[in-house]
Computed example of a mutant assay.
Amino acid sequence: MIVIYNRLIPFRGFKCINIFGILFVREGCTMSQTDFNHEAIHTAQMKELLYLPFYLLYVLEWLVRLILLQDSRKAYHVISHEREAYDNQGNPNYLTERKPYNQFKKLWH
């Protein structure tokens, strides 16, 4: 994974953002192995969905959850892509064990 440390991307208050498998990290932030695992899971999700559909589904699911929950932070944490990444970020072997499209197992749970 390519990692770019900079002052502009992501916006202030955010540690990093994964854009098409390139990780942009806010200058001054420290990334742990758990953080890298989390982002690597997102990269796997992006690849299997051919990148653009990943972003479309991610935003659409966030909007639906935002309407239902009325809380942007809670909506973010229950997006199926995030749930898979958070649930497995501590497992360094997860990507070798992961089944394709695994994020959709928790779509409506």
Score class of each variant (00 low, 15 high):
residue 108 W to K: 13
residue 45 Q to I: 09
residue 12 R to V: 06
residue 27 E to R: 15
residue 109 H to P: 07
residue 73 R to F: 07
residue 22 I to F: 00
residue 92 P to A: 04
residue 95 L to E: 03
residue 88 N to I: 03
residue 37 N to G: 06
residue 36 F to Y: 14
residue 37 N to I: 08
residue 103 Q to W: 13
residue 22 I to R: 05
residue 19 I to P: 01
residue 21 G to F: 00
residue 72 S to R: 14
residue 73 R to M: 10
residue 38 H to V: 05
residue 48 E to P: 08
residue 55 Y to T: 08
residue 19 I to F: 05
residue 86 Y to W: 13
residue 4 I to R: 13
residue 44 A to G: 02
residue 96 T to Y: 10
residue 70 Q to C: 12
residue 103 Q to R: 12
residue 7 R to M: 08
residue 106 K to G: 11
residue 31 M to D: 01
residue 108 W to P: 00
residue 23 L to H: 00
residue 81 H to R: 09
residue 85 A to G: 09
residue 42 H to I: 11
residue 47 K to Y: 11
residue 88 N to T: 08
residue 39 E to T: 07
residue 4 I to W: 03
residue 40 A to G: 09
residue 47 K to S: 11
residue 58 Y to I: 02
residue 78 V to M: 10
residue 70 Q to Y: 02
residue 92 P to K: 02
residue 48 E to I: 11
residue 72 S to E: 10
residue 30 T to Y: 06
residue 18 N to Q: 02
residue 54 F to T: 04
residue 94 Y to N: 08
residue 86 Y to R: 14
residue 91 N to V: 03
residue 35 D to N: 03
residue 95 L to A: 03
residue 86 Y to H: 13
residue 36 F to A: 10
residue 45 Q to N: 10
residue 59 V to I: 15
residue 23 L to V: 01
residue 61 E to H: 10
residue 106 K to N: 14
residue 99 K to T: 13
residue 68 L to S: 04
residue 97 E to L: 12
residue 10 P to V: 03
residue 38 H to F: 05
residue 74 K to A: 15
residue 35 D to G: 06
residue 103 Q to I: 09
residue 107 L to V: 10
residue 109 H to I: 12
residue 48 E to M: 10
residue 104 F to V: 08
residue 89 Q to A: 12
residue 42 H to K: 11
residue 25 V to S: 02
residue 71 D to P: 04
residue 93 N to M: 12
residue 84 E to W: 03
residue 88 N to D: 07
residue 108 W to H: 14
residue 93 N to Y: 13
residue 30 T to R: 15
residue 60 L to Y: 10
residue 23 L to N: 01
residue 48 E to W: 05
residue 51 Y to S: 05
residue 84 E to L: 13
residue 7 R to K: 15
residue 107 L to W: 11
residue 98 R to P: 07
residue 99 K to M: 11
residue 83 R to F: 02
residue 21 G to W: 00
residue 11 F to D: 09
residue 60 L to V: 09
residue 1 M to Y: 09
residue 88 N to W: 05
residue 24 F to D: 02
